[in-house]
């Protein structure tokens, strides 16, 4: 009993003090709000991928940082690249504060580029924080003759993708149009694993996924093999901040012309939303600040970091407030003209 009670009391005190410091938050913290209650986190994908793994790892570790130590469970509602779950979260998820979501990293991009399918307003979600940053990293096979992005100005490459609307399609298409690269795209691979296999088979020469996908599946590609050669290189990345593992890979926002920067900025929300948690609109305001504190504490908790690392999950946290600010900014910059231009550039219509 004693061993369990100590961290609870500790976190309650912290949550309380943090709540009182946060501007506009109720000083009382959470009180009995979550005592003996269950929080359900919804993910828009199956349990096999990183959404499943991050959400379940968080479900194990977050409870101890929330006053009242609620039970946390995860439900999966896959479909339409996460849009189905996000629509549900916006339109029908209970607003009591006991139902949360792990928004797809494409939440903002989908709303702006695929408005017909989206029934939510991303800026109305309240972000609690994110535990991984998912910049899109463009990787190209070395035997294509491309070792840095500029090489694609002269050398034509064929890049595979999982379909229009996916990041593996969007980011190379933007690079092609904005940087004038010689890229041919082949669409329709089923999922990242098969796209990466086709790349190894030589059917295409590269594609764009987040670094976790690359490093967990084919980390050996980026180290010299038996023949001393490297199989593939990361040549370009899109996000808000550089991926700490890839300090030498240039950011697209630094390379494009001024007129393209707003488009690149709203695409960059992909990276910062990453794998995090959010509340649906209309939840009681008083819970937001203490929950953000709890989230921040969790991502710094050595037990969480150790478990995540053991499960091959990266911990690159961003606070809820930072995500909220970037989402707001992306909307402010993405006026209808910018979005229309982006849509035309990407989909040609």
């Amino acid at each position: 009993m004693y061993r369990k009670a100590a961290p609870i009391a500790f976190s309650a005190v912290l949550a309380l003090s943090a709540g009182s410091l946060a501007p506009g938050a109720e000083a009382a913290g959470l009180g009995d709000f979550y005592k003996d209650r269950t929080i359900t986190i919804y993910i828009g994908y199956g349990f096999g991928g990183t959404y499943g793994k991050y959400s379940r790892t968080m479900a194990e570790h977050l409870s101890k940082h929330i006053e009242g130590n609620p039970k946390i469970i995860v439900k999966s509602q896959p479909g339409a690249g996460g849009i189905k779950m996000t629509n549900f979260a916006y339109t029908a998820m209970p607003r009591g504060g006991y139902h949360w979501l792990m928004p797809p990293d494409t939440t903002v991009v989908s709303e702006l580029l695929r408005p017909k399918k989206v029934r939510y307003r991303a800026r109305e979600f309240t972000w609690l924080g994110s535990t991984n940053q998912t910049n899109t990293i463009l990787v190209v096979r070395a035997d294509s003759g491309v070792t840095k992005w500029q090489d694609m100005k002269k050398t034509q490459v064929t890049l595979g993708n999982t379909g229009p609307g996916s990041t593996s399609f969007l980011i190379p298409r933007m690079a092609k149009e904005m940087l004038g690269l010689k890229i041919k795209q082949v669409s329709g691979y089923k999922g990242s694993s098969k796209t990466i296999l086709a790349m190894e088979q030589g059917e295409h020469q590269g594609t764009g996924f987040n670094w976790l996908a690359w490093s967990s599946k084919v980390s050996h590609w980026f180290k010299p093999g038996k023949d001393g050669k490297i199989f593939a290189n990361a040549v370009l990345q899109t996000g808000v901040w550089k991926d700490p593992d890839l300090p030498n890979v240039p950011m697209m926002r630094d390379l494009v012309a001024e007129k393209h920067k707003p488009t690149v900025a709203f695409m960059a929300t992909l990276g910062i939303i990453g794998r995090g948690l959010a509340l649906p609109p209309g939840v009681p305001k008083k819970i937001v600040a203490p929950l953000r504190v709890a989230f921040d504490k969790m991502v710094k908790d050595p037990a969480y970091v150790a478990d995540a690392t053991k499960r091959r999950l990266r911990v690159l946290p961003t606070s809820g407030k930072d995500i909220q600010d970037f989402v707001e900014k992306a909307y402010a910059n993405a006026n209808p003209k910018v979005v229309a231009a982006a849509r035309k550039m990407i989909f040609g219509k």
Binding site: A80, K116, K117, T162, G163, P164, G165, S187, G188, F347
Partner: peptide, 8 residues
């Protein structure tokens, strides 16, 4: 969602 053109 057609994987080639994105047509529904």
């Amino acid at each position: 969602d057609d994987p080639q053109t994105g047509t529904l």
